[in-house]
Design a protein around this nucleic acid. Structure first.
Lengths: 335, 335
DNA sequence: CTGAAAGCGCTAACAC
DNA sequence: GTGTTAGCGCTTTCAG
């Protein structure tokens, strides 16, 4: 048996409410008594039962995090930020992996709410036109914007329109003109936002977005690989590929290599996210950096603000992406 | 207010114990009554409170996983296997990141046991000579062997001695003779085991292990980078580097490139783990594959076996590593 | 088949 | 300062 508050009360010969007070540092216990209690408590290795505590306090001190893919370093970094921040305020996190499956996601949400998590952080498996999560009792924060109008919500995100704009501007500056897109999942709202940014960069230079050169796929290396092959077989004359995340770009580079294209000479490649591996000397992928870890931290702390009903200074936090220019696009070689 | 078992009992005009029976599919409720209850329950969106359940059932249906580094894909894959397997049996997992810090690890263990997790999966932040985790009430499974004698434990691991042996045999076959080691953290027991395997491979060919060519560092890219620079400045005549994990090897390759060495011509490089990125066409790192996902799955299911007191067929499961020969070692160029 | 009641471990009034 | 008690939401005897 694990020792309870009652055990220690009995051994000392007092009521267990006093023990509770003493152990929680609440007033209403004599100083020497408190000492005796605390001493005995850790002599017995007493561990308060958080289930019981949660039951009465109506807070489990846990949050749930649902991401589609733990092996995309983008989410890995975010999760790290989330967990660290939550832990600092003594919250533990349930990690759930939806694998881009809305059914799994729904099941997770159910399970988490049975577990009485105090909040949820979610990257939806699929993006919809509007908020389909309003029925959920626990406060939710989203990883990446998931639909157009979220006036009422607190959000923290990285500016996707700007990121798309920066990427295309860079490609154009490098001399690339015929740009193909690896846009990932068809429903992705952040992809749509980036596309908007792309379009306005194109327009500035009086160029047009060729919607026929947009290829969709799963957000992973194989997806990027396959999509690139499809794209290249279809769209002759492409001189650059902008992938909407780095692992997609990694797949693209693999396909390009197989097909005998030189990067960045024949075709320039840009990624998005700036995962660690993109910076390796053998890869040197030009990309748009997202502050992943900080994003995780901010999402987590904002969720905790909501949970603890703290005043929130900014309703909408927008972080900035930055251009990381490396070897897969090159101003000198091209043009 | 969230609806409880009492709410639905009151609305239907029966006792709440009947509701409990009905909702849990236990006998002792009339069929039609059960239907009414179930219908009302999901009409009201009833979600059983797992905290309360856990309190009486003395099981939280949760496990805790403590790993040192979520951004090493080795752990990422393992965690994925763990979570999936746990979820299949309706357990949720608390993910904890120790950052190789024993103090954080201890805190996590405490927190988890307050949360009344039913089991823990742990990769120790630091390896010791013996089991320092015996005081913990919850059943524990370890990721990687952590000390010599664990007779009494259930274990599932990948054969490290064999892996070390395979790696060195391969390097020797390629013609490399003067091998330096990136052994990671000094305390690492799995590194020690691999070293044992290395030694016996060396001995078979009447070669000696040069302990002076073993360099320690943190298990990350920077660690590998720095360790390689130290090693090369100290140990002239090295013609191969065996890194005890892939990200260490990635760091090594970076350092090697900077210093102007050709791989695999001047120096061969081997990793360990076979993370996804090692297989990219630009990297092509020769490595020892570990079945990471399967390892995660098996560790998780064994833990659940223990928790649920199921019969365990094999006390010790040993999985096999395999050699993945790629471009950073080469039989033809060298020798 | 159904209801009443005890109790899981704890917190928080409320008395004294 | 300390004890008594109710109750958080649920499961599980034990009566009826």
């Amino acid at each position: 048996m694990t020792t309870t508050i009652k055990d220690i009360a009995r051994q000392i010969g007092i009521s267990y409410s006093s023990v509770s007070r003493a152990l929680n540092g609440k007033p209403g216990v004599g100083e020497k008594m408190r000492c005796r209690i605390v001493a005995l408590a850790d002599e017995l290795g007493y561990q308060p039962n958080d289930l019981a505590r949660g039951l009465v306090n109506k807070t489990s001190k846990t949050i749930g995090v649902i991401i589609p893919d733990i092996n995309n370093p983008f989410f890995g970094e975010i999760v790290k930020g989330i967990i660290e921040t939550a832990n600092e305020e003594h919250y533990e996190v349930f990690l759930c992996i939806s694998e881009w499956d809305s059914v799994k996601e729904r099941d997770y949400i159910n399970t988490l709410s049975k577990k009485r998590v105090d909040g949820i952080i979610l990257k939806p498996a699929m993006d919809h036109k509007k908020n389909i999560y309003e029925h959920i009792r626990a406060p939710i924060m989203f990883i990446e914007q998931s639909w157009q109008d979220n006036q009422s919500e607190h959000t923290v995100e990285v500016d996707n329109v700007k990121g798309g704009y920066m990427a295309i501007s860079h490609l154009i500056d490098c001399g690339y003109r015929n740009i193909g897109f690896l846009a990932g999942r068809k429903d992705s709202y952040s992809s749509a936002l980036r596309m908007t940014g792309c379009e306005s960069a194109l327009q500035e230079k009086a160029l047009l977005l060729n919607r026929d050169w947009i290829e969709n796929s799963d957000f992973n290396i194989e997806g990027g690989y396959e999509a690139t092959k499809r794209l290249l077989s279809r769209a002759k004359g492409i001189d650059a590929i902008f992938a909407f995340n780095d692992i997609l770009a990694l797949g693209a580079m693999q396909a390009l290599k197989e097909l005998g294209y030189e990067i960045p000479g024949d075709i320039g490649v840009m990624g998005y996210d700036n995962i660690t591996y993109s910076g390796l000397p053998q890869i040197q992928l030009t990309t748009i950096n997202q502050p992943k870890y900080e994003l995780g931290r901010m999402i987590s702390s904002t969720l905790l603000d909501i949970i603890k009903d703290r005043e929130i200074l900014e309703k909408k936090v927008v972080l900035s992406p930055t251009l990381i220019s490396r070897a897969t696009t090159c101003e000198t070689i091209h043009r």
